[in-house]
């Protein structure tokens, strides 16, 4: 997936082949995100339609993606997540889910000041998260972004399910302590 720049170059030469490469590279994460967001709310056909729409939009907008490393991957994942949430809302409306039904990634109706504080908190946590190093960063990302099980993550980072569980808990504890430390410093 790190070959996003190569895909973009191919896409600019031959959009059809580029789209094929985009599908080969990103079908997995896009399906994963859509399944995670729509699980229990949508049928397979709805999920497939959502994934199709996402790739059509990626193909339409890929030319505007900057060739900075990682830009295409970030663009695809972000777009997939947004569209999956949109699809959830659409389906929920159609199926008349109860209003109190929890929705994925519902944007908070916060004030600009609160949003700024949240962004700053995310930035601090991201820095601390990356300081953990691998495989912890990947474990936490996959656990909370993709919602993968410890067993699934274990296959990616070549660790047992139990080992992933332990590393995940330890990493969370480390982060918790470091965040407290940061707060103390700030004070």
């Amino acid at each position: 997936m790190e070959q996003g720049n190569d895909i973009l170059r191919v896409w600019r030469k031959d959009p059809d082949r580029g789209l094929r490469l985009l599908i080969d590279a990103y079908a997995g994460p896009v399906w994963k995100i859509v399944r995670q967001k729509l699980a229990g709310a949508a049928c397979e056909a709805d999920m497939e339609e959502t994934v199709n729409d996402i790739f059509l939009e990626i193909a339409e907008k890929a030319g505007r993606v900057d060739e900075a490393k990682g830009a295409l991957t970030a663009f695809v994942l972000t777009l997939a997540r947004r569209r999956a949430v949109d699809a959830y809302r659409r389906i929920a409306r159609r199926q008349e889910f109860p209003a109190e039904e929890p929705r994925p990634d519902e944007p908070a109706q916060d004030s600009p000041e609160e949003l700024l504080l949240q962004k700053e908190e995310r930035r601090r946590m991201l820095l601390l998260l990356m300081e953990l190093g691998e495989p912890e960063t990947t474990i936490l990302f996959r656990r909370y972004y993709y919602g993968e099980s410890y067993a699934e993550i274990g296959k990616v980072v070549h660790l047992s399910e139990n080992a992933v569980n332990k590393r995940c808990l330890k990493a969370l504890q480390t982060l918790r302590e470091q965040m407290k430390g940061d707060v103390s410093h700030d004070e």
């Binding site: 997936m1 790190e2 997995g28 994460p29 399906w31 994963k32 490393k69 990682g70 991957t73 970030a74 994942l77 991201l126 998260l129 990356m130 691998e134 960063t137 990947t138 990302f141 996959r142 972004y145 993709y146 990616v156 980072v157």
Partner: peptide
């Protein structure tokens, strides 16, 4: 995160 080497591949 991607640039930092996080494995996001599925």
């Amino acid at each position: 995160l991607v640039n930092a080497g996080v494995n996001v591949n599925v």
